[in-house]
Design a protein around this nucleic acid. Structure first.
Lengths: 159, 159
DNA sequence: TATTGTTATACTCTATAACTATA
DNA sequence: TATAGTTATAGAGTATAACAATA
């Protein structure tokens, strides 16, 4: 095959969006195995559990914003967790459209069993990095995320 | 809510697997909009196109390995691209189980139209990073990927 | 027997939208 | 009118496995 003008070829293994997608899938599988296989939680269910474990009590929309899920995903995950006896829903007397969601003792116990395993896997991943890169990572992720949000905005306003 | 022992809580916004998953989704949406909305390609189709655009001619299993897709995804993407007249399949006389896949002129033209747009979006993302972080990123991604592969292996061998 | 590639199936995820009940 | 949450639906992705053809 004749090589093409390098400006007009993407070297996939070096293309950052591709690399990030593959890495995220891989990590999601490796870390997700903790809550998926051992505790039969889907990823949205785990995120809802994590949001409530961290914050104690939230409304559905707060969870959606906090966990980067849409409201249907939250709704289904909440229903599944309630089914398992992991959370309760109470009407908010101040605004009865809201449901106040909180973990039951059973839900908190589940959360507490998962957290150390998930943190251990994160630590294992980050241990591969020299200190300087480990410090740079959160900064890089934040910068890329801001920039990606701008790109998303471009699509919506100028189709 | 009583705060819990910090060793037993995950702060989701700082949890790297979560941050990476959210970022990858966002970038996938932003960059994927190029080939999805404007050129009606799914992500697997785009990856197959990118593999063939970079390498010229490949068998299905090579594409699968190169593009981090499984063989069914490749099979379906290849069928869709052939349907659109973007690639051809020829029997390999040396091993007739293989199909030799290559882009048609139409497929190459499509590839050439997408590449500059995708590269521009990548550049836009990376422009947000200071030079040092931009240099660190490929190194970090590679290290995390090696490590995630080890984690994946752990799950399979020690369930 | 093992490998390439296709097909079948089922489950999850995503996106859109319609609907309710409250405000 | 607008918001919180649920339900319905269809499209895409993913995973497992069975299968045909070839090696």
């Amino acid at each position: 095959m004749a090589p093409v003008d390098p400006e007009h070829v993407i070297r996939l293994q070096h293309f950052v969006p591709y690399r990030l997608a593959v890495l995220a899938e891989q990590i999601s599988r490796a870390v997700g195995a903790v809550y998926a296989e051992r505790f039969s939680l889907t990823r949205p269910e785990w995120r809802v559990l994590a949001a409530l474990g961290e914050h104690g009590e939230m409304a559905g929309t707060d969870i959606a914003r906090f966990s980067a899920l849409d409201k249907m995903a939250v709704s289904r995950a909440v229903a599944a967790l309630q089914e398992r006896g992991c959370l309760t829903r109470h009407d908010d007397p101040r605004d009865r459209r809201h449901k106040r969601l909180r973990l039951t003792p059973r839900g908190r116990a589940l959360y507490r069993r998962i957290v150390p395993l998930a943190l251990a896997r994160e630590r294992f991943l980050l241990d591969a990095l020299p200190a300087q890169d480990r410090a740079a990572l959160p900064r890089i992720l934040a910068a890329l995320q801001r920039r990606a949000a701008e790109l998303d905005g471009l699509d919506e306003t100028a189709p």
